[in-house]
């Protein structure tokens, strides 16, 4: 199955595993997408190899950045009309709290979809959604210039 076929299938069934399983780095990190009562959430399942600070311990900043960027791309793939794979232009992450060695969730909101560029706001949290551990603004190219 091609990536875009997997996207089309996931849009209909709301079962995203067949798509995320095609992405080697998502598998390597343990990133998945899940439907929670009609809301799309992305998840980074904890595993020991994700640790960036063994003394605390805390997850590596790169794993949280990857989750936030992935959540933005998943949002566009499921909701945007374009069937091209979105390309990240810029990613700006604010790290608000240290990420503990447990599962992390992310929700992405499409702030603005223009003709070529989409702006997505993403929040990541662990135990409580009211206490985000990181937020990001992601700009993605959804349609190249003609």
């Amino acid at each position: 199955m091609s990536l875009l076929e997997a996207v089309r299938a996931a849009r209909e069934t709301r079962d995203y595993d067949a798509f995320t399983q095609l992405i080697p780095f998502a598998q390597f990190l343990g990133i998945s997408a899940e439907d929670h009562q009609g809301e799309l959430l992305s998840k980074l399942s904890f595993a020991p190899h994700l640790i960036g600070n063994p003394a605390l311990p805390a997850l590596h900043g790169g794993t949280i950045g990857s989750l936030l960027e992935s959540a933005a791309i998943f949002r566009l793939l499921w909701d945007a009309e374009s069937l091209l794979l979105p390309k990240t232009i810029t990613l700006t992450v604010s790290y608000l709290r240290s990420a503990r060695p447990i599962d992390t969730w992310a929700h992405a909101k499409l702030t603005k979809q223009g003709r070529r560029v989409a702006s997505v706001h993403v929040e990541a949290w662990q135990e409580s959604r009211e206490r985000p551990i990181a937020v990001a603004t992601v700009h993605l190219l959804i349609k190249p210039a003609e």
Partner: peptide, 10 residues
Amino acid sequence: HGGTITSLMD
């Protein structure tokens, strides 16, 4: 994956 570049940069 873009996340690998993010991780490398961090």
